[in-house]
Design a protein around this nucleic acid. Structure first.
Lengths: 330, 330
DNA sequence: GACAAAAATGAATACGTAACCATTTTGCAA
DNA sequence: TTGCAAAATGGTTACGTATTCATTTTTGTC
């Protein structure tokens, strides 16, 4: 492997000068720059990023701990994060983590001496949060947040849950169901409580069996859907805790021939890109600005990294209904 | 930052011993191991991966140059690649590249001294191929391949194109269209020629205007679709060059109220996960083994990396029709 | 208890870069 | 020409680890 020393020898200068040519060429006379550049070309020299990171203590690398891509929300955010980071000169080390093997994921992040961490998969109560803070490494959670209420970018989940229920109520639905994910994550927790508040405000009572918290897997959602459809008084509408869940439910509905929205209204939350597609046209709740949460988060993270200030990011985007074709008056 | 030297001092041993405790503990007496581990715990020591990479000349990192995630094919492969690599202890640096800024992407791969490169985005004629080979760095292209016919994992694209046309022909279609991507990539090139061969074998002539090569963007596909639908003798079936294109076309069909498959049959190629979903049920061509191409590729890449042998991977998976619900007898 | 072989440990070094400090060269005014 | 500041360049070191080679300690055998 050809090193800057080899270049130096070949060009007849010191290694220091080679380094300067690459990093601060304005400090080097033009003829010398030319000599060195020629040597670099001819030897096909490429600087070793590891060695540079070792001495500079920055790696131009961030870690992304994302949820799985079969959830379209993470398709959108991963795309936004990776692309933005790359334009800013950062490499992105991507991992798709289940909540359980999260700790493992952090270890590699730290070993690598990455410049920052961006993650969605954090529990409200996650003990990892304090460890992250104590490391003085910039990090941001997107979508979810920790109970400590710091370092996050989210939508107004409470309001989203509220609007979701309100939308259906105002369409005349009374027998509404809630199908969502575990309450151990802030997103579902707040959406659920927003949902409940709307029911309360409109003085609507729904049977307990209409409320189902799944693990967000396709299997459990399908089971939940089939349960709901088996009730004597079937719900006429479902609030899904996320677009991903809503899409699962739409799929289940098609499977057993329940027409959406004719026989069943479904509303999601997140306004993922795919929800706009003509074949889907999912009614959903999303950020008013329509900015991708991943994009907002990575932008802030890179600011934190580059400004070296301990600024504490707390962003909650306002939400509104995106009224498309999967809900209808009863 | 606490280093192995600090641990050594704290534990009263040499830095060498600390290194040994972490890498070859069987060479160290148990009491010493305990002492050192205790020091590691108490000082909260985490080894620096950059320093290790510098001396070992391996980084446990690979670069993935993927196509964009709005193409569901890349959702499947990215998931498979990242997850498999992680279980094998490799970190994955992900980039979503447009064909044009490919060269840039390689540069960072090389700077980082990654252990290998896995990529889909290579043109048949790409000059980068020789440069990659000359670097003696393991790499594999998945999905696409270079004209040099080395280092690839693909499906039998020619056969796929053939089967795609044959399927429609045997359903009685005669006015068949071809909507696909640029012929500069092997995938579309071979699929297209397989398609043509089937028409020839069955002695079917289609008007030139039925053949459209797009840049695979939603916009161009929609334009193509609308063109096709505007012809006096509308095609009764479309062979899409990929599932991604097929899904775009289905979307366009819904938009203007053309029922699939009643009024129009559509068949894709790739058998992406999402094509199985109940709401879609796309008829498509895919690998008989149903193994994810990304998975096959990363498995081979890691073998190459770890065996250090220059084995040249050439895998072409056999294909078959997955007959679902978007094609029908005319 | 002596001795060789094996096991355990340590000292020194290399990896490739950037940064720090020292030295040489240049440019320009006196 | 001299002197002196500024510009240009070079020598040396640190970063944190694994590795190589040397040294010390332990083990087992006669």
């Amino acid at each position: 492997m050809v090193s800057s020393k080899d270049v130096a020898k070949y060009a007849g200068v010191s290694q220091t000068t080679v380094s300067r040519v690459l990093n601060t060429p304005e400090l080097v006379k033009q003829p010398t720059v030319d000599k060195v550049m020629k040597a670099i070309q001819e030897l096909n020299y490429i600087p070793n990023a590891n060695a540079r990171s070792l001495v500079q203590k920055r790696t131009n690398t961030i870690v992304l701990l994302s949820g799985p891509l079969h959830n379209p929300f993470f398709v959108d955010t991963t795309t936004a994060i990776v692309n933005y980071a790359n334009t800013k000169g950062y490499r992105v080390n991507v991992q798709f983590v289940n909540d359980d093997k999260l700790t493992e994921a952090y270890a590699t992040a730290i070993e690598q001496k990455v410049d920052g961490i961006i993650l969605s998969c954090i529990l409200i109560d996650d003990p990892i949060f304090e460890r992250l803070e104590s490391m003085h490494l910039p990090f941001i959670t997107y979508n979810r947040k920790h109970k400590n209420n710091r370092h996050f970018v989210e939508i107004d989940n409470y309001k989203a849950g509220y609007l979701s229920a309100q939308h259906l109520i105002e369409l005349g639905h009374r027998n509404i169901a809630w199908v969502s994910g575990p309450l151990t994550v802030s997103t579902f927790y707040n959406r659920y409580h927003g949902f409940l508040k709307a029911l309360e405000d409109y003085n609507i009572k729904i049977p307990q069996q209409n409320i189902i918290h799944t693990d967000t897997s396709k299997n459990e959602v399908t089971t939940a859907f089939n349960d709901l459809m088996s009730f004597k008084s079937r719900p006429t509408a479902i609030c899904a805790g996320s677009d991903s869940l809503a899409l699962f439910l739409m799929d289940d509905a098609v499977s057993i021939g329940v027409k959406v929205p004719e026989k069943l209204s479904i509303i999601g939350i997140d306004n993922v890109d795919i929800s706009k597609h003509a074949a889907i046209r999912l009614t959903t709740i999303g950020s008013i600005s329509e900015e991708n949460l991943g994009y907002l988060a990575i932008k802030k993270l890179i600011e934190l990294i580059e400004n070296k200030k301990n600024g504490c990011v707390k962003i909650t985007e306002s939400v509104k209904v995106f009224n498309r074709s999967t809900t209808r008056e009863i």
